[in-house]
Design a protein around this nucleic acid. Sequence first.
DNA 1: CTGTTAGCGCGTTCAC
DNA 2: GTGAACGCGCTAACAG
Lengths: 331, 331
Amino acid sequence: MSAPEKPLRKITSFDVARRAGVSRGTVSRTFTPNASVSPETREKVVKAAKELGYRVNFLARGLINQRSDFVGVVAASINDPYRAMQIEQIAKSLVRHNFRPILLPDSQGENADHAIEQLLHYNVSGVLVISYAPPTALCAEFAAAGVPIVLINKADSIPTVDRVVSNTDAAGRLAAVTLIEGGARQLVVIGAAAISFTARRLQQSFIACCHALETEVRTFPVKFNDYANGFAAAATLNGVDGAFCVNDYMACGLIDGLRQRGLVVPFDIRVIGHDDVPQASWASYDLTTLKRHFDLQAEQAIDLLLSRMNDLEMAERVELTPVSLVRRSTA
Amino acid sequence: MSAPEKPLRKITSFDVARRAGVSRGTVSRTFTPNASVSPETREKVVKAAKELGYRVNFLARGLINQRSDFVGVVAASINDPYRAMQIEQIAKSLVRHNFRPILLPDSQGENADHAIEQLLHYNVSGVLVISYAPPTALCAEFAAAGVPIVLINKADSIPTVDRVVSNTDAAGRLAAVTLIEGGARQLVVIGAAAISFTARRLQQSFIACCHALETEVRTFPVKFNDYANGFAAAATLNGVDGAFCVNDYMACGLIDGLRQRGLVVPFDIRVIGHDDVPQASWASYDLTTLKRHFDLQAEQAIDLLLSRMNDLEMAERVELTPVSLVRRSTA
DNA sequence: CTGTTAGCGCGTTCAC
DNA sequence: GTGAACGCGCTAACAG
């Protein structure tokens, strides 16, 4: 009634400038990293801003800079414990670096492509792909737009697309050595090599190491690397005394399946997993496993992102994330 | 060398307009929901846009509309299976509604407040808070900015802040009835009522129902609702034949702990959980539990968001998410 | 239904 | 170090 002006008008840098008795440019510089403002004026501006409740509009900033501080995070089946761990670490690292993770939870396939493409509408600073291998055409599109993509634990090499991969060579070797040292002589590796890059690589290095140590080994292919397939595998597994599961989730299933058959882990058969998810340390499993350092991997991914932002033409890089053995009671 | 003009200039609506032989306004209308363009011109514009590889800049759009299509999602300990399920469903629902979830993974406390406040810099459409109760001052700030907040499974009622909560009354009652029908006479409810709203409410309704059915019941307070505390609880639990754990994670720990003591579930003691996380269906546990419908809850949350966007002054609403009993072998 | 005009809020040249 | 101008890419309101 009394006020003709709108009560909820947005506070802009102009308002702050007026109140602080300076120009808009000065206000802008005060809130821009790499500024150059005299301490006194800066203080005046900050004070005025606080009194008015001013906040920089990052949308406008992104418009100017041709780059926002968003980073796309593409991930499917967050449900899986290790996937959840990955995402949490990645999100935390991004926020720590003052990026904002925009989460794209996608079922595989066409939808994912579409969702990823959407990111170009927001001038994102980059994309982290966890659970899906985008087609090269799409990668090229991002490269053309100057938006770096980092693939996490993915297979194929794509020009100007950096990757960070878990050290599967070391993991496979450690698994084999640990089982053999524990007394196993007839080994098996269980995993869906067909659908998972990590599984495939783990299997390869595990087998290679077994051969080098002159130990018998065979593969047990499954459809998915999950609890159910591990459980089912136990039913038809014979003549082995040491099993390497390419993830803990599946190892838990295997152990439960073996128990149902009356077999005792690790006496009848030793089991080793991969990931070190929380369940691995549960009393019911107490699973010996290869720990993946997701916190470290997240930092590596962001480092790659940052360095490529500085040099778009850089040759593609592959960063290796270390794994470490966690000795528990199953091997 | 040959081209003086920059090769990578961004395609703008102006370029599309020129190529299609129309004005910028027309191009804009073509890509704006609730447009009004003649089919023919629309086709021309779309064609030109496709040829040029044009994409609307959503940052600029957000600048105009005073509102972006981002929605903040605040969540701690994504690690927990049920938290992960929640987040996945929420993110999927948001994307389905054409929002972009920006994920704030935060440790409790001051940091969280700061992180949430950051959202105001992006003109977000709303905020979904899963794992943290923001102070009223902060809520007021968002209300003043016209940004709706929806709290998920949180306690305190705050003016103009909507909430969606799991139907804990039904869950507690179902738990009690199921245990008693199964033959239990000495009940216990295990949970960290002090730190979790859901746990507190479940405990209350469980006890109330026991009283109504004239069955003995007591509480077993723990520090956190996790596996370790469930496991530890088993060691000092005596004289009970039915236990309700406020989440499955803890129920798994309890079962493992009981087994270690040589007790047999469900004969010596019946156990019922809450959430229905994937582990609950594992053979090793086969846990009877109350299923939370996260998919539904996510939709409810977004509905609240949308309706409040239409009417900021609306009285606060509380939406109830149903739970359902999943009968397995532990009760 | 279409073209035109006027901002949205800010960063970054320039002169001074 | 500071202020004035211009432009980032787009949508909304109006005139035709």
